[in-house]
Computed example of a mutant assay.
Amino acid sequence: MEAQPFLKKRILGIQSGELIAFLGFYLFWAFAYHTAITINSRAWSKGEVSLLDFGEFMDTVGLDYILKALLTFPIWWLLIRRLKGWKNIKKISLHFIFLPAFVLIWQQLYYWISEIVGFGHLNGVARVWDIYIPALFYTLQFGIIHSYNYYLDNQRKIRLEGELRTAALKSEISALKAQLNPHFLYNIFNTISASVPAKNERTRHLIAELSDLFRYQLKASQVEKVPLREELEFVNKYLALEKERFQERLEIDIDVDDSILNELVPPMLLQPLVENSVKHGLSSLIEGGKISISIQKKGDQLAFEIADTGVGIKDKTNAFDKGIGLTNTRLRLEKMYKTTLQLSDNTPKGLKINFAI
Rank of each mutant, 00 (worst) to 15 (best):
M1E: 14
E2F: 13
A3N: 03
P5N: 12
K8T: 12
Y26W: 09
Y33P: 00
T35G: 00
W44N: 01
L51Y: 08
Y65H: 06
L71Q: 00
W76L: 09
W77Q: 06
L78F: 12
I80C: 09
N88R: 05
I105D: 02
Y110S: 03
Y111G: 10
V117P: 03
G124T: 03
V128S: 04
D130E: 06
I133Y: 12
S147H: 10
L152N: 14
R156W: 09
K157R: 14
A168F: 11
L169H: 09
K177E: 09
P182W: 01
H183L: 15
F189S: 03
T191I: 11
V196I: 15
E201Q: 13
R202A: 14
L206E: 08
D212C: 09
K219H: 06
S221T: 11
E233K: 14
L239S: 04
A240M: 06
A240P: 00
K243G: 10
R249Q: 10
L250Y: 06
I254L: 12
V256P: 02
V256N: 02
D257M: 06
D258E: 14
N276W: 01
V278F: 07
S284F: 07
Q296H: 07
I306G: 02
G310I: 06
G310S: 07
V311R: 00
E334C: 03
T339V: 14
D345Q: 08
D345N: 10
